[in-house]
């Protein structure tokens, strides 16, 4: 999000017509080449592999009840996980930016840990804690709350791996947001809720949405941590990436890529929608800045 801010910065806005640095063609060419090599070519391979199936076969593969149940779990749990992170990630970023307290640096570093930890380790650790004989599981299970080996466990794992995205995207924007703006709002008669919802939140929306989208995208593709805690029961706690792996285990390459293609299309549509929302909200709030 920092790029957006610098691009809108008054000192740069004047020279928008003429770039200081030359080389637009060269850099654009490189961008396209780079994106093609890293993103487009591998992804198009998935689409090409799918053409081994006739459309009827493709449709049957991607709409069997087991696969459909897995889409619901994967996208549903990812949306819930990303939403939880949007709320608590914002809170965490707020605390880290606006207050100073002993141990702040350590907490700041803790946020990045889900990035660094191998996902399998995260999955095993979460399972050990939330299983019926684990630290938390042994407290929760008598209350009738089963986390490990249920869809709830999937949400927990996806929330865990998505946390850094929201915090790290919101944090720099919040740092740039001067406390004076809030003081001005207060002196103009806004109450606390109004200050939050009319002054702070609109400025944070684009960053928050980006963080949400990143956390969501990461969660959709997550495999390593989830398979340990999910229990992997067909129709109940089986995620789509596991369906893909299962198909590969049976040498069903075309079936695996068919499901992958559906996942890609849904993910792309959702990310596009989030981007659209972001564009809309930043335009609507453009005057507020």
């Amino acid at each position: 999000m920092t790029q957006v801010i610098t691009a809108n910065h008054p000192s740069l806005r004047k020279r928008k017509q003429k770039n200081v640095l030359p080389g637009f063609n060269l850099s654009l060419g490189y961008t396209i080449l780079y994106l093609s090599l890293i993103v487009l070519i591998p992804l198009s391979a998935a689409f090409i592999k799918t053409t081994e199936l006739s459309f009827a076969e493709f449709w049957e593969t991607v709409t069997t009840p087991r696969v459909v149940a897995s889409y619901q779990l994967t996208f549903g749990a990812s949306l819930i996980g990303a939403s939880i992170n949007a709320v608590f990630g914002l809170l965490t970023a707020w605390v880290l930016v606006r207050y100073s307290f002993p141990g702040k640096k350590i907490i700041d570093a803790l946020v990045d840990l889900p990035f660094a930890l191998p996902t399998a380790v995260a999955g095993i650790a979460l399972t050990a804690i939330f299983a019926g004989n684990g630290w938390l599981g042994s407290w929760l299970e008598p209350l009738g709350i089963k986390v490990a080996f249920t869809p709830l466990g999937v949400v927990v794992a996806l929330t865990f791996i998505g946390l850094p995205f929201v915090v790290r995207t919101v944090q720099p924007v919040l740092e740039d947001l001067e406390a004076e703006a809030e003081e001005a709002a207060a002196s103009l008669g806004a109450n606390r809720w109004q200050t939050f919802s009319r002054v702070i939140l609109p400025a944070l929306y684009p960053a928050l949405l980006t963080g949400f989208a990143l956390a969501f995208a990461r969660a959709v593709g997550e495999y390593g941590s989830v398979i340990f805690i999910a229990g992997n029961m067909p129709m109940v706690s089986e995620i789509t990436p596991l369906i893909i792996i299962t198909k590969l285990e049976q040498y069903d390459y075309a079936g695996a890529t068919a499901v992958a293609v559906v996942m890609l299309v849904i993910s792309f549509a959702l990310l596009l929608a989030i981007n659209g929302l972001q564009w809309w909200s930043s335009r609507r709030n453009g005057s507020a800045r």
Partner: peptide, 20 residues
């Protein structure tokens, strides 16, 4: 069958370590 681990060692862990 309450859970289905992806591999043999995973099932062993569930039975032995998690007590399932």
């Amino acid at each position: 069958v309450p859970i289905l681990d992806a591999g043999g060692r995973g099932a062993t862990t569930s039975f032995v370590q998690r007590g399932i």
